[in-house]
Structures are given as C-alpha cells and as structure tokens.
Amino acid sequence: MVTSPPASATGGQSVGRPPFRHRNLLAISQLNPFEIVDLLDRAEAMIPISRQPRKILPTLAGKTQINLFFENSTRTQASFEIAGKRLGAQVTNMSVRTSSIAKGETLIDTAATLNAMQPDVIIVRHSASGAVELLSQKVGCAVINAGDGAHEHPTQALLDALTIRQHKGRLSGLTVAICGDIANSRVARSNLLLLGALQVRTRVVAPRTLLPRGIEALCSEVYTDMREGLAGADVVMMLRLQHERASGRMIPSIREYYHFYGLDAEKLGWAKPDVIVMHPGPMNRGVEIDPAIADGPYSVINEQVEMGVAVRMAVLDALLANSEIAA
C-alpha cells in the first residue's frame, strides 16, 4: 500500500494532505469518513518509527502533554505516554489517586488548574460519558478522549481499524462481529461508528441483558447467538466482561457466560477460515476468551497494542500540527 509520510515529518509542507481540521479528538462521531481514512493513513506512516532503532520523530519537541486519567488504565496511559515521547513531547501523567479530585475538586476546577499550566494537549479518561467533552470546553488546548464512560474511545477504534486494514488490506465490505458486553462498552460504540462510516458490515453479539436498547441504530445486525453472529465473519472482536458488575444480575455466572459467549475454537470455527481475533484488553482469559485463542494463530491482539502507539502518534501529530497552523 502506498502511503505518504505525515505532513509534519516533511517540515509541515503540503504533500497533498489537508491539515486535520479539529482542535480535539473527542469522538469518532465528530469525524467524516475522509478524516477517518486520513488518520489511518497518518498512523500507518508512523508505524516504521517505532520499529527503527532510534524511535524519535521530534515534531512535538517543546510541547507539553498531560495524561489525566480518572480511571486506572496502565495500558492506554503507557501507549499515550510512549506516543508523545516518541514525538518529542514532555509528558506528565496525572492519575486520580495523586490528584485533588479525591479532595472534592470538581472536574471543571481541575480543568481550569491544568489549563493555567499551559499544556498543549490533555489526554483524558473518565468514568462518566461526556466528561471529556465537558473538560474540553474549559481548556484552551487540544483534548484527546482516552475513554469516557460507555460513550466513546476513539483512538481504540482507530487502532482496531488500522489493525484490520493491515491484515485484510481493506475495510469496506468486511464483516466484523463485536461480541460481549455491548451495553457498557465505549469500545463497541466507537468501533460501530467508525466501521459503519467505512461501509463495514457490523454485527453485535451478546445476551439480551448486555444489549442496550436502540443498538440497531448503530450496527448492521444484532445477534444473541454466537453461531449465527460469527457465521462468515472476517473479524471477531471480543469485549472485556466487567464480571464483577454483571455477575448475578446481567448474567447468572461466568460458567454460563463462557459456555454461550466465550470465544473458543469451536465457536471460532463458525467464522471465515482467515478470521482474525481482536480484544481491546485487558483480557479475562477463561471468561470471554479461551487462553488458547487469545495466544493462538488467529489472534492479532499484540499487534493492536503496536498499532495503538502509531495511532496515538498520528493523532497527537495531527492535532498539534493543526494548532500551529491555526496560530
């Protein structure tokens, strides 16, 4: 596949790619299909940087990046941190336990305080849907949503799409089955929006208690049976079950959930022979996925992690290059 290097990698000169026209990345729903493909192309061009011995493309030299995580996430936080550092940014991590939120400060107070420190980009994860957008209204810098409640997780959807494209060479026309706790998943929502925008046939597969009302509006097909839902799928995307919360109310037991919805070799056999298996992590092995599948030949889960760094580098570069153009 022919791709061009990121504009900023060539000194910000035009290489036929218009600047990214958003100040923030809050949701996939804010992007049109061209912008999604543009971000995927930019991310693809970032992949080699992480594979070379000197992993640095200092387009963000002198920039300040704050990772503000109100929910714990070692993986996503590390991914954003590494992405920023590979672009030369100064990265500060703030997690909820060390912040003043515990002292009763509101989200808006926190936003105002951080804003006064003149960061260039704040990456936010929060347990409440819409919290990141609320914070973005109160700061003068770029904001990236690293997951808000059950709403969106846009960089996850971008890295998933990039992983699929790397493997299948395309996105449109594929059939992707997203399985598990759809009701509580921001990953599912962002993926359905992104894949839907790029003409992918999207399916959700879950027990009825984990299917939110009106989900039909976001996907092509809804299934409650794994055999039907996985039949002919090019991609199977498993979601983490929040079993501490769901157990006893939404599902009777992990045993029953695994029996009907856990991805094992038999169920995977219903999908296409060249199927790939994805999971946003962290996995509950033996709950939603058989360890042998997670670590087996169909799994691209570790590649998702690698694509995550590339996507986050591309998003940071796109947003901050944009900020300079705007200035």
Binding site: S129, G130, D148, A150, H151, E152, R189, P212, A217, L218
Partner: peptide
C-alpha cells in the same frame, strides 16, 4: 430516557 439517544450517548436509560 431509555432508547437510541441514550445508547449513542453511552448513558444508562430509564424505561
């Protein structure tokens, strides 16, 4: 209100 709008917004609905 429970429904498509709540689901798209990632908010829990009230039936």
């Amino acid at each position: 209100n429970e429904g498509t709008l709540a689901t798209i917004s990632g908010l829990k609905g009230i039936p």
